[in-house]
Write a protein that binds this DNA or RNA. Structure first.
Lengths: 125, 125
DNA sequence: CCAGTAGTTCGAAACATATGAACTATAGAA
DNA sequence: TTCTATAGTTCATATGTTTCGAACTACTGG
């Protein structure tokens, strides 16, 4: 029982901004996506069992990859026993120019800031 | 009982990309924010009781404004019995250049697309 | 002080997310 | 072919988040 659904990728027109933002608003998914986009090459799920100094259970990782796929951010293809995941940056750039670049850049800025002052807090109003 | 907490705005350094993306991944909040950013002027909560052809209950609206405020996207100030809300676009642009612009632009692209083909769907793979 | 308006808080229901255990899918060895 | 190992998925459930009506607070002008 409980068949394994075939992989579904939304067509480019069905990709929504809300979906993209939601998918990338999770720190683990953002890190996975940044890594995939940065390397420019394909990677398997289990390359990310350790990320951001955390251990992610593989069931959770699987869900994260599904979220990225459903949002239209990545394309996943089975090759033997593994899954190869690549970003769909190019397509998304066509539809929403500058979006992915700005988000990745912002994540970079934030990471750089954290590295400089590890525990820094300033007053809020 | 149940005092009313004073308004809190995160300082610019405590604003996170994840927080911004999460706040703007909700269609209602995205619409509110786009409106605020587009007009460039202040607006009260109840200006948005109708938005995107939906009626939003005011308790829900209040939570949405809180989410935007906590994410650092807007600044709210009480003036008499009303709240005046303005975006913090300028500050965020300093910290995360291009981010807000790209998101607002993407929302614009998406709205334009929807207007053209109201029920259009294409094949998924 | 009273009534009216703007927004907030509370509590419960509806929805979403994370994770261990059990599963499917594939490859290669025996 | 059957057995074993590896990679990922699904399911059940516990935990967290979101929504929204009802009741509240805060302020203003009689």
């Amino acid at each position: 029982m409980s068949a394994m659904r075939p992989l579904v990728h939304p067509s480019i027109e069905d990709i929504s901004v809300e979906g993209i933002l939601h998918a990338l608003s999770d720190p683990v998914r953002a890190a996975i996506y940044a890594e995939l986009a940065g390397s420019g090459s394909a990677a398997t799920c289990s390359n990310f069992l350790q990320i951001k100094e955390r251990n992610i259970p593989k069931s959770t990782l699987s869900q994260h990859f599904r979220a990225l796929r459903d949002a239209g951010l990545i394309r996943s293809e089975r090759q033997g026993v593994e899954m190869f995941n690549t970003t769909r940056c190019g397509e998304i750039e066509q539809r929403f120019p500058g979006l992915i670049g700005a988000i990745l850049h912002a994540h970079g800025v934030q990471a750089a800031g954290k590295a400089k002052k590890p525990g820094g807090k300033t007053k809020a109003s």
